[in-house]
């Protein structure tokens, strides 16, 4: 028998001895605490299904169908207001550089720290 096997053999004996010890029983207090935790963390009856569908999870995150309806309405109103603004100012305002001029004159490149990076 090799020296390496000897070393492992006494470890086997140690594992057997430790695993052969009688298992410890939990106290009633621990059982009561675990059960109290379980009841406190438990979803409401009929609540969370184990795996929800993606659409249901997204809707739940947004606040349900009612909230989604409000979101759609608000988006439609915003779109209509936007169209009205364009008809007043004209589509050309979008690419005539007015916003760019405001950005360069008022804020400058330093607003994002690019001047430091570019030296």
């Amino acid at each position: 028998m090799t020296d390496r096997q000897d070393k492992v053999n006494w470890v086997d004996a140690l594992l057997d001895d430790v695993s052969g010890a009688a298992p410890a029983d939990p106290s009633g207090d621990l059982m009561a605490r675990v059960l109290a935790d379980a009841e406190a963390a438990m979803p409401a009856p009929g609540g969370a299904p184990v795996r929800e569908g993606l659409l249901r999870q997204v809707l739940a995150g947004l606040g349900g169908w009612l909230s989604v309806g409000g979101l759609v309405a608000a988006t439609a109103v915003g779109f209509a207001v936007g169209l009205g603004a364009l008809s007043t100012v004209g589509l050309d305002a979008l690419w005539q550089g007015e916003y760019g001029a405001y950005y360069d004159d008022t804020l400058g490149f330093s607003v994002n720290g690019w001047d430091f990076e570019e030296g």
Binding site: V34, A38, M42, P43, G47
Partner: peptide
């Protein structure tokens, strides 16, 4: 348990 079954909580505990 995830559906709110208290008996399942006790059994698992």
């Amino acid at each position: 348990y995830a559906r709110g079954d208290a008996a399942a909580a006790r059994a698992l505990t």
